[in-house]
Amino acid sequence: MKASRAAWLFLAPALLVLAVFFLLPVLGALALSFTDYDLYALADLHNLRFVALGNYWMLLHRPQFWAALGHTFYFVAVGVPLSLAASLGAALLLHSPLARCKALFRTALFAPVVTTAVAMAVVWRYLFNTKYGWANHLLGLLGIHPVDWLGDPHWAMPTIILFAVWKNFGYNMIILLAGLQAIPAELYEAARIDGASAWRQFRHVSLPLLGPTLLMVAILTVSGYFQLFAEPYVMTEGGPLRSTTSVLYLMYEDGFQWWNLGTATAEAFVLFLVMFAVTAAMLRLSRKEAA
């Protein structure tokens, strides 16, 4: 009896914080998304009206929202596979018995992960400057014409994707590397005796055994990439021609520049539902494949 009282006392501070500053606001968000909370309601709560699913209905008919959802999907669909490929490639290189100075390379490749996204996005803006940036300078050496990376609606999102891959690949690299190291050496030994090439060893030993880790990493990366915000905020301000406006960027604009909190919370919830559906589908698909 005494032990359980101690337990609740130990739990109280953390549970209180999570309940008041997370659970309550999430429930509040759901309630808020059924109202027309705006600047007038902010001034006087009597102006608040219940609109049921009105905000969601309006979102479905708002091209801006569909565009933002499209940009976010573009970022996720291209960015996640690229990130995972970079992570897996780097992990395989670090795991190779031929690699030297492994600790040093691991630290160097991981360094971008701990940097501040906002600061590095600023650096990226200058590296991809049309006139003086290194990206175009290097392309120029290869005889390729300068690209207006952040000023051209076709190139702005790819530039942000490149940045995200650079910034994040090290994180999954560490997890995949640990996964590779957990594969018993005897399996490779056996494959080698059977005359399997390096590629076949990767395809038939590493990849299947790494499967569960890859799936977990993919799901975490997908949910992380759906939350695109700081990069467009600093690098492009959602432009050019709103081509990098993500759902969260739109939510921030609607909520904190126009004070349409009802609309903005509905946007947040739709994003949440989309993320949930996509990650659940990934889980399901992989289970079906395994079965």
């Binding site: 500053f21 997370f22 309550l24 606001p25 999430v26 509040g28 968000a29 808020l32 949910s223 759906f226 939350q227 915000f229 969260l248 939510m251 909520g255 904190f256 909190l261 903005a264 919370t265 947040a268 919830f269 994003l271 949440f272 993320m275």
Partner: peptide
């Protein structure tokens, strides 16, 4: 639940 869902009501 992504943290951003809670941000508007928290504000």
């Amino acid at each position: 639940v992504p943290a951003q869902v809670a941000m508007l009501p928290l504000f």
